[in-house]
Simulated assay, not measured.
Amino acid sequence: MQKSNKKLDPDEMLFTLDQLEQTTEIMSKVVSRLKRQLMQLQQAESDREVLSKPVSEAPTPAKQRRTLH
């Protein structure tokens, strides 16, 4: 990437920052929706496993979620 000697226009910078903010908001919503769908799939799979096991077997506890920092 080449650096230009062009002076940055504050209005252009604000516009670009607004676009970035909108993009990150949309990406955050998409990630949240994907996480929700994955949790629903995991729950459905867990429910199927519980229903398919004999009554004498106890259901296994769900895996703990990892938190990234």
Rank of each mutant, 00 (worst) to 15 (best):
Q22K: 15
E25W: 07
A62I: 07
K29R: 15
L68Y: 13
T24P: 00
I26E: 14
H69W: 10
A44Q: 04
V55C: 05
Q64Y: 03
D9M: 00
V55Q: 08
T67W: 14
M39W: 05
L51C: 06
V30M: 13
S28L: 04
Q37H: 08
Q42C: 02
T60N: 09
D18N: 08
P59G: 01
Q22Y: 02
P59V: 00
Q22D: 08
H69K: 12
Q42G: 06
L34G: 01
K35Q: 10
F15T: 05
P54F: 05
L8G: 01
Q43K: 12
K7R: 15
E57V: 15
K35G: 02
I26P: 01
Q64W: 05
M1A: 04
L34N: 11
T16G: 05
T60Y: 03
S28Q: 12
A58S: 09
L51A: 15
L41Y: 11
D47F: 01
V31M: 15
E25Y: 07
S4R: 04
D18E: 10
T67N: 07
R66I: 13
L20V: 04
M13Y: 05
T67G: 02
S56F: 11
E57F: 06
E57C: 03
L20C: 10
I26C: 07
L41Q: 12
V30A: 12
L41T: 09
